[in-house]
Design a binder for these strands. Structure first.
Lengths: 248, 248
DNA sequence: ACCTGAACACCGTTCAAGT
DNA sequence: ACCTGAACACCGTTCAAGT
């Protein structure tokens, strides 16, 4: 954007002490720190997002981050809120509130699972960030538009959140456990194979029911399981609609 | 049990080198290591259960544990399975399968929450330990006795597990976050108060629905939320019962 | 005000050496 | 076979010192 000519790369002039390491290109800022942390998250998972690692990625030491972020916990919550900003929110249409709630849940799941195990941060946390609150607002708006009573909607948004977090974690945990070099999908297939072999080798006299339905238990299509549970929850929530409160 | 007389505590004989530190009273064993780990878990939460901490509690160094346990991950799974052994399992009564499934879920929740945040270990893990398998077997036996098709029961046991894990984590996370000295309940009350104040201070133009139902959102009785979600799931599962398959 | 090096008090795991 | 000390390669956070 600036109109100054680009600086050519010159050798260090004689007698000039070179700086120890390359200085950070951008001045350190909370936004830039969160950007970097999310880059590490996407590449290597939540466990790799350490203060030291993020600092290193920024070409500085871990102590420098504490001027912009109170600690690791806050950094994680800022990351989650930034991810939540990616979630596309619906304009409520009272006629289709169940469909819209289902779609919104699928969208949340899509965004969460696209950022590895970020859902771990959400688990058991009260949503306080602006974008997380936008998402809660949208869910509640849909339910209220559909005539779900306040007391039910208040609990339901929590139950739905638990289900979404748990599902996203379950779907990405195998990524986390795969050794850093290996192809994640190949590793996953190998793991599933081992699980099937283990279940098939179980003593049928102690585990008769499990032994008789190994295939059904191993049918681990995360998408399918998600749709099943989500359907249960949305229909269940809908059963609490009080007709007098419903518009139209 | 042995009939030998108890050894009296004598002073170290002259010229005898005393052992560096008191030797472990029991010889190191996997069971004893897991016992100790669970003691640390109950006292201070899962995060405090480190190899070094458990070793220290046993009066030895961290390296000594690796003869009995392959690493931290295995220790955690052994802890979970030991906890699962505390869960009381029902004898299936096909007439009451829904009630029994509901009761079993409550029992699982009770045992999990009584061991701090142990549910974190269960999240996203395939149950392979003998007692965890007993619990899965019991859940599946109830559903099958009630006429739930195999494919549905296979997914439902997973959904139910996710819900139970997430709920147990949510209920114990505030314990984990309380500073080690403070009274956990007092800390929890203070935290809830802060959350209420925060929600009440939210701009109503951006969050109109949330702002209009702060009380309903803060009604954080974990037990109530659990019963709500569990009811939804159990009734939802029951809706898949095929009458032809049902006994009686 | 912002950044830094160094230090503190921790981690999980490995490995050669001992008994 | 089991146990150990020491080492390796990490953590999060603090703090006095620099600019």
């Amino acid at each position: 954007m600036a109109t100054t000519r680009p600086e050519p790369e010159l050798p260090t002039p004689p007698g000039r002490k070179p700086r120890r390491t390359a200085p950070p290109r951008q001045p350190l800022t909370q936004e830039f720190i969160v950007d970097t942390a999310i880059r590490v998250l996407d590449a290597e998972g939540l466990e790799a997002v350490t203060m030291r690692r993020v600092a290193q990625e920024l070409g500085t030491g871990p102590a420098s981050l504490y001027a912009h972020v109170s600690g690791k916990e806050e950094l994680r919550e800022l990351m989650l809120d930034r991810v939540a900003a990616e979630i596309r929110l619906p304009v409520p249409d009272p006629e289709r509130w169940q469909e819209q709630l289902h779609e919104l849940a699928s969208e949340i799941r899509r965004v969460f699972t696209s950022h590895r195990d970020i859902a771990m941060v959400s688990m058991g946390m009260v949503p306080t960030g602006p974008h997380l609150l936008d998402v809660a607002e949208a869910q509640l708006a849909l339910m209220r538009a559909g005539g779900v009573p306040k007391e039910i909607a208040g609990i339901a948004v929590d139950t739905l959140g638990m289900f979404l977090d748990a599902g996203a974690i379950e779907d990405t945990i195998h990524l986390t456990k795969a050794p850093p070099g290996a192809d994640p999908w190949e590793y996953f297939q190998k793991y599933i194979g081992e699980v099937r072999a283990y279940f098939n080798a179980l003593p049928p006299d102690r585990y008769p029911v499990v032994s008789g339905m190994v295939d059904e238990l191993i049918a681990m299509d995360g998408e399918q399981r998600f749709e099943f549970g989500l359907g249960l929850l949305v229909r269940g929530i809908a059963s609490y609609v009080e007709d007098e409160e419903r518009p139209g």
